[in-house]
Design a binder for these strands. Structure first.
Lengths: 226, 226
DNA sequence: CCAAAAGTGTTGGCTGTACACCCATGT
DNA sequence: ACATGGGTGTACAGCCAACACTTTTGG
């Protein structure tokens, strides 16, 4: 969503207009087993050099915020067609008055190929086991988690956390990991099926499974609100 | 909410980091009778000089985004203690790549004293009767309205659109104006009272009324989620 | 006395939640 | 044979929507 801003009101007498740095941050989340994980990188510059932080960077010449966020996501994970949404814009906390536009992305951990840098490669961390982070990055991650939990209730965002074909149990595990509580199997299936956001592929999952399970796919691999 | 941003990643080779203008816009909404209205001002500078637009301006030295938005709101309406929340950050549409952080505010039109500039004073416009606007300001207003309608359903934001003491009918009119449809009186009262977000003051409203009505006030004059 | 707004309950449908057993396959 | 996960239905409760009349006051 790239729409227009508005008034280039002139600075008033007595005050100075600022030209702050504008950074983009991306909270990249995935579900791995029963845990929600977030992708972190090591900072290569001061301040907080060498401490873990969310991936991000400055806005490049003539790119929009959405483009910058998608670029960052691609840089770190090699993934492009996933759920990516603006989260919140933070100001003022690197001490030098910069502005940081946070995004959040949902990726299938199987599909992501993390950047293989020689030093300080990115890594996944369970959101309950975060290392000390630069700036107030915990706040940003909390914000993303709250938003994700809310969206799970009224949208199909989970499409971005699973492979194209998946079983209802896999889907349920994703919901349980994000909500942090077990869900009743029958109620879950009833609800999801009645929403008609997924459809059976006709195939069966048999890979090392006990009883083969029906495969489903999302009708839309883009965000849909119920 | 002023929290910290993150990485001051260095620009990479081959690309140029941008130092864009950062503007703050405020969608100031009120409910007047049966209409939702938005405050607009006339632009005093190119581009779009003299056309209507949302109030806004550049970030001043050493102020946060929230402070800038509150300042703008105060400048235009003289109002300070109201609902004010960040909405979305737009990039790229004044053609010169600026970044605009939009906020939205809810004010009681009785309480707002519009800035009395000699020329081009601000004015209220019904959101269904907007004049031609600068940039893509219609998009921003739409966004605010959607958010407001959603919040009405699960928060007490309406507190900011009414005087401290009000009748249930007044509250219902506010809801009806925002949702754009009539609500059943008995169901409305039942629902609101069961939420326990308001309480009777003990007083009665009798000003030019037919039958005196009980007055209520919000238990919390700050945002609360149900 | 008439107009205008305040106030008040009940019913039916729908939705969400709790809950337990059998089956197919792999080992 | 057993362990593992897949698959299925019912009953109760709470919530929301529909619906009409009486009362009080001002003009």
């Amino acid at each position: 969503m790239t729409t227009s801003p508005s008034p280039a009101a002139r600075p008033r007498a007595g005050s100075l207009a600022r030209r702050p740095d504008v950074a983009v941050l991306v909270v990249i989340l995935t579900v791995d087993g029963a845990r929600v994980k977030v992708l972190l990188v090591r900072r290569s510059a001061e301040p907080f050099k060498d401490s873990w932080s969310l991936p991000g960077g400055l806005l490049m010449d003539s790119e929009s915020l959405d483009e910058a966020a998608a670029r960052k996501l691609d840089d770190e994970t090699g993934v492009t067609d996933v759920f990516l949404e603006q989260l919140y814009t933070f100001s003022d906390l690197d001490g030098r008055g910069s502005v940081a536009v946070a995004y959040f992305a949902l990726v299938d951990s199987q599909q992501a190929h993390l950047a293989r840098r020689r030093e300080w490669p990115p890594a996944w961390f369970g959101v309950d086991e975060l290392p000390p982070l630069a700036f107030a990055n915990e706040t940003v991650i909390d914000y993303a988690l709250r938003r994700l939990r809310a969206k799970l209730d009224y949208s199909n965002v989970a499409y971005s956390l699973l492979p194209p074909d998946f079983t209802l149990s896999q889907l349920q595990h994703v919901y349980e990991a994000i909500l942090g509580r077990p869900l009743d199997k029958r109620n879950f299936r009833k609800r999801i099926l009645s929403l008609a956001i997924i459809e059976p592929t006709g195939g069966l999952a048999s890979e090392g499974r006990h009883r083969p399970a029906r495969l489903y796919r999302f009708r839309e691999r883009r965000p849909v609100v119920f």
